[in-house]
Computed example of a mutant assay.
Amino acid sequence: MNLEKREIIIKEIQYWRNNRLLPEQYCDFLTNLYDDEAAAKDRNPISLKNLQQGNIKIWLFGFGIISLIFLISLYFSVFPWPLQLATALSVLIICYGYSAVYRNRNHVISLILAGLGSVLSLGFGLWLIALHDLDPQLWRPILIGACGLLWCILGFVLRIGLLQYCGYAFWALLYAGFFGGRRPEASMLELELLWLPLCVMMVWLSWLIHHKVKGVASVFFAVGVSLWMMPELDALLLRQDYPQWISFMLILKIAVGLALLFLFRKKWITWVAT
């Protein structure tokens, strides 16, 4: 059974228990039934128990993975560039592919593999730029944009909200860098006009799709909330010669944002929880 469906069933059983719609022993039986099914399906083959029992397949698998990591680390720089690119793509496909395989079996392993693939995608990109003396002013923004797009797509496909959020964060970084280079002397009003429309748009999209596309509304809402503070963060971190009152303005905006979240909590929690 799908993990999501099983969680819904367990929550429903808990609701029956709390409202005394079923006898306690029936609720215990049903809870144990689905918990046992979860344990059977989510059993991790790479466990301390299997290692202690001397499972030769697990030990050989671990030896192969560790050896492969060392070989790539030691000899990656001497590979011809097509082999470097093929190696990087193969590692990423393996990480993200197994993340998809384990998505319904073991969510923790799926998250770890997706996180590893994301770190490696950025790391391989920076490594290739350094190895081939590519122009960082050109290729780093391309890498940031490519990683952001990849993470947005895979975060949506794998239903990993954090990965999708990181993708949008990279696009926001690219957006900030682009306009920082074009308008380094931008006023605070310009920065507010640069970021706040995006904030409103993301929150509006969160409301628009919360009942149509599952798992995306919460990401859009989180991105919108983050963009609320971006004008001040842009001024403090990416630009120079800004007055000290910007930090107090940031604190004020955080307070206003929390107040808005509190006032409209019944609405946005519905979007996020959908």
Rank of each mutant, 00 (worst) to 15 (best):
W195K: 03
G148T: 04
F221P: 10
L149R: 01
L21W: 15
L111A: 06
V203A: 09
S121L: 14
W127G: 04
L252W: 12
F248M: 11
H107E: 11
L89P: 04
W268V: 01
T31H: 06
V219P: 01
I46D: 03
F76D: 02
F220V: 05
C95L: 12
V272K: 03
V203Y: 05
L3A: 07
T274A: 15
L150Y: 11
Y98I: 02
I9D: 05
I58G: 00
F262K: 15
P197R: 11
Y96F: 15
S226Y: 13
V119F: 03
Y15P: 00
R140F: 12
T270A: 15
I66T: 14
K5N: 15
F63M: 14
S187R: 01
A40F: 11
F179P: 00
G117A: 04
K41A: 10
A38Q: 08
I10N: 04
L250S: 05
R159M: 04
T87S: 12
S206P: 10
R265M: 09
G181V: 02
I10C: 07
P231D: 00
L33A: 12
G215W: 10
G115D: 12
M201H: 14
F76W: 02
I72F: 00
L68S: 13
I254N: 06
W271C: 04
E24Y: 08
